[in-house]
């Protein structure tokens, strides 16, 4: 046994060195086993499908990929997804930032309820959201006569698809901006005002630069979610081929129509976009944490 600094040995009630070493080894083994199980789990569950999609997409070679991605249906599907995402981003970012500001800076009756309500879309199944939209805007719905009278097609068309995506994405910007705003406090805003800055100058020169990473994080989450959304959009879209078919819906129908290769290729493209978004989210999250910490 090596000599180590420790309490003088009076009565030998502690396990001997050999026993200690054995216990240490066992503990290390258990720890490695846990790490191994986690890695295996993540590999199978996360990487497995990704690799599967990757291999399937390339099965029929690069030309097939080029051909699929340039086909009118696929291009239209991506364009539609893009359109929905852009409008969703504009709406949820603007209103989200304002809502976060109202929730953090103001005390009013019903604030707590509103605060909880913001998270409703996270708790609700997208299918329910889609159905609710159909109930409101579909045949016999509350708002249907008003829109029909003005010749606006809401359901089974772009407006309803955008509407449900916005609904589902409401929480992201609010929930990522609110804590940053809260942490920021009002002193810098007050300081800007005493220095003569108008409300708009305060917003653009002081508040926005301070919450930019929180805002960016929310935007990244919203983008990822609205690109990947299918449940609610599927229900309100009516799945009209070449008209209301987003990228995710395209993947779904491709398999139903036994166009597996096309399905895999579009799915892989979506996965690639997700990975890029994931990186963006990760980076902005770190910056956001720095922002909150000050």
């Amino acid at each position: 046994m090596s000599v180590v600094l420790g309490p003088p040995r009076l009565v030998d009630v502690t396990p001997g060195g050999e026993e200690m070493r054995r216990r240490g080894r066992r503990r290390a083994l258990v720890r490695s086993a846990i790490v191994a199980v986690c890695l295996l789990y993540l590999t199978v569950v996360l990487l497995g499908p990704l690799v599967g999609i990757f291999l399937s997409a390339f099965r029929e070679g690069l030309p097939k990929i080029g051909e699929t991605l340039t086909s009118p249906d696929v291009r239209h599907a991506f364009f539609l997804t893009f359109e929905i995402t852009i409008v969703t981003l504009l709406v949820t970012t603007t209103f989200g930032a304002v809502t976060a500001w109202v929730l953090v800076r103001h005390r009013f009756v019903g604030r707590r309820i509103l605060n909880a309500l913001v998270e409703l879309p996270l708790a609700m199944s997208p299918v329910t959201v889609g159905l609710a939209c159909v109930l409101l805007f579909g045949r016999g719905g509350w708002f249907e006569p008003w829109f029909t009278a003005r010749g606006i097609q809401v359901i089974f068309a772009l407006p309803s698809m955008i509407l449900v995506t916005i609904f589902i994405c409401i929480p992201f910007v609010i929930r990522s901006v609110a804590p940053v705003l809260d942490e920021l406090g009002t002193e810098e805003e007050d300081a800007a005002r005493t220095l003569g800055a108008s409300t708009l100058q305060t917003l653009f020169r002081v508040i926005l630069p301070n919450i930019r990473w929180g805002l960016f994080y929310g935007i990244a989450l919203t983008t990822a979610r609205s690109i990947g959304e299918i449940g609610a959009v599927l229900i309100v879209s009516g799945m009209l081929k070449g008209q209301t078919e987003t990228a995710t819906i395209y993947v779904l129908t491709a398999f139903e129509e036994r166009m597996d290769a096309e399905g895999y290729i579009v799915a892989l493209t979506l996965a690639a976009i997700s990975i890029v978004m994931l990186l963006v989210i990760e980076i902005s999250k770190r910056r956001k944490i720095k922002e909150v910490m000050g």
Binding site: E187, A191, A192, L195, R205
Partner: peptide, 26 residues
């Protein structure tokens, strides 16, 4: 009025010079 806050309330994303210039810039 010039106002000095207990916790400084400096604009953390601006340099010292930009902070001092703020009241002039706006």
């Amino acid at each position: 009025v010039g106002f000095v806050f207990q916790h400084y309330a400096l604009f953390r994303h601006m340099t010292v010079a930009q902070n001092v210039a703020f009241g002039l810039a706006v």
